[in-house]
Design a protein around this nucleic acid. Sequence first.
DNA 1: CCTAACGTCCAG
DNA 2: CTGGACGTTAGG
Length: 129
Amino acid sequence: MPKPKVGPAPPPEDIFEFSMDSEEAQSLHFNRKSSEKMSPLSKYIESEHQQAGLFSLSPFNGSLDAANDLQKKRRKKCGACVSCLRNENCGTCANCLNRKTGKQICKLRKCDELKRRRSELEVSELLMN
DNA sequence: CCTAACGTCCAG
DNA sequence: CTGGACGTTAGG
């Protein structure tokens, strides 16, 4: 036996590249949701990112601040759009009627800037044109 | 502590 | 794709 050391178990480096789902990783970063049911692992990772927000592996102490700045924190109402100016809920929309369950602001008061960011920006252009 | 509201997931 | 529900975050 010329190579008794390596046998059924390949080097860890190979495992990393082999086991890592490049497709999943990219999809998670660019298009976290498309048509993939994703395993609980992906959900777990996403939750970690959202809650933690900071990674222990910080080789760059200075750049860490910049990365933190780009963190996806919760946005607030712009306070300039008509929806924001409406400081009174209609009390007739689904959100108003279902507030305790839906936990969402009145549709009339929903800031235009915060309006469904799930569809990925550029929705205004489609609506405008 | 409680309430309001945003963000994301699931179902229709 | 849109709406509804749930979890989580932010403010009082």
